[in-house]
Simulated scan of single mutants.
Amino acid sequence: MTSYVVSFPIRDTVVRSDNNIPWVLAMHSNVVSIFSCFRRAAATCRSISCNTGNDLSLWAKERVLAPYISSERRNRIERVLENRTRNVVVVLEHLHSKGNENAVYRSMDALGFQEAHSITADEESEAGQASGDPRTDAGARKWLQIRKWHTTRDCLLHLKSRGYQIIATAMNNRDNSSLPVQDVDFDNKIAFVFGAEKDGVSDLAVEMADVCCFIPMIGFTQSFNVSVAAALILYETRMRRIRMFGRNGDLTDEEKRSLLVEFYVRALTSSKARRVLQKYKYDATDSSMTENI
């Protein structure tokens, strides 16, 4: 028999569940409050027991983790989630410099973009692409959802199937129809593709793109460093979205709750908290942030 005790802000009210059957014991003059409490108790019990064994629901994981994180940290995480979006994603195609890749992730985190896709050859992945450099990413990588790919075609087909408009960052394409970034249509979900430092995006990426865009330049040089280009385009995107929609963040409640739990895990510094997670068969070292991207 498993019992859960949950206290609500109603005087002398205790909610108890034995074998998933909620019982409400209340000493309160207002009968309506008792029935309201009963409904809340039933919902609580269903949420707690939604998984079998000791596995916890997102609702329960949040409450297990929250006591181990300061209120200031929790408030900051909630503010970050309010300003996050996955409707604009970044694709990095065969970047050679680890520093450039991490700098892009740092800009993404700072400007509120949650999802990235990194296309790397097998040997590049084996060379240590999964690790971050604190000098360039400032710890940003752990707060993002990053999925690895081995081919450009697979990555872009996946994003197209999810409804993203593919925008390759290229000064010139075959029909010279590349647009200044400020002329891009921001009404749709967007995936910006940034190419390698020397050669830029591949011919395949340009061919599969719905449109190409570039950053207008007025100097002798005709290109930016890839991490600088990404920062400029993402900043322009953020400001355009704020002007159009009133805000950049647009995560659903379900997405926020899922990321909240993942952010709590990443914010943990207490070994005791990690032992609590392990007790409930939740591995704090294993990320599930890429499951749905």
Rank of each mutant, 00 (worst) to 15 (best):
M1H: 07
M1Y: 05
T2H: 12
Y4H: 15
V5R: 15
F8C: 01
V15D: 01
V15P: 00
I21H: 04
V31D: 13
V32I: 06
V32A: 14
S33V: 13
S36N: 11
A41G: 08
T52F: 01
G53T: 07
S57D: 06
L58H: 08
W59S: 10
K61L: 15
R63W: 12
R63H: 14
L65I: 15
A66G: 00
S71Q: 11
E72D: 14
L81M: 05
E82P: 00
R84G: 04
T85H: 10
R86W: 03
V89N: 08
H94G: 04
Y105K: 08
Y105R: 02
S107P: 02
S107V: 05
D109A: 03
L111W: 06
L111I: 09
T120W: 14
E126S: 15
Q129H: 07
A130G: 09
S131W: 03
G132R: 04
G132H: 04
G132W: 01
T136P: 01
R141L: 02
K142M: 13
W143D: 09
W143V: 11
R147N: 09
R147G: 07
H150Y: 09
T151S: 12
R153Q: 15
C155Y: 04
H158K: 13
H158A: 15
H158Q: 14
S161N: 10
R162D: 13
R162P: 02
Y164R: 02
I166T: 08
I167T: 12
A168Y: 11
T169R: 04
M171D: 00
N172L: 12
R174W: 06
R174S: 09
R174E: 10
S177L: 02
S177H: 00
S178R: 01
Q182K: 08
D185T: 03
K189N: 15
I190R: 08
A191W: 10
V193C: 10
A196S: 11
E197C: 08
D199I: 13
D203M: 08
V206G: 00
A209P: 10
V211A: 11
C213I: 02
F214P: 03
F220Y: 11
S227Y: 10
A229L: 03
A230K: 07
Y235A: 06
R243G: 05
N248A: 11
D250C: 12
D253M: 05
D253A: 14
R257W: 03
R257A: 14
L260Q: 06
L260D: 03
V261Y: 08
V261E: 02
V265S: 03
T269A: 09
K279Y: 11
M289A: 10
